[in-house]
Amino acid sequence: MKIHTIPEILGEVPFFRDLKPEYREFLAGCARNVHFKAGEFLLLAGKKATHFYLIREGHVALEMEAGNKVFSIQTIGEGQILGWSWLVPPYTWHYDARAVEPVSAISFDAKCVREKCEKDPVFGYELLKRFSRLIAERLMATRIQMADLYQ
């Protein structure tokens, strides 16, 4: 089995695929492979958003506690990005994210990426375009969910 390097993986994921190779190289420099056991938390509401994830395997549930019950409100799986609060002050997470099953992911250091964005606005804009699309998609999904679609 071939072991893929992080830049190779970024080159295959739709989210990063059409970034310039040098930018992918740079992102890879801020990234490392991480693994979570089922039930482990990747994010905790209220904590500092110091990183974001690209999920490689398994899926993660965004959870919210309401009325003493914990609800899963969205799941994020293979090839998808988890976390955008690292881009928006005050850089804190809004939900808990828990591994539903064993999860492998690539973790990106938020500070490292943010600093690069400030220094290189072209890179910053490219990244912002991708994240704003992601945020818009999540917002749309949430609005549709509010419509109680299957009533």
Binding site: I73, Q74, G77, V100, M140, A141, I144, Q145, L149
Partner: peptide, 9 residues
């Protein structure tokens, strides 16, 4: 243990 989110996703 399955997916959560709207069908469009």
């Amino acid at each position: 243990r399955g997916n959560v989110g709207v069908i469009t996703r």
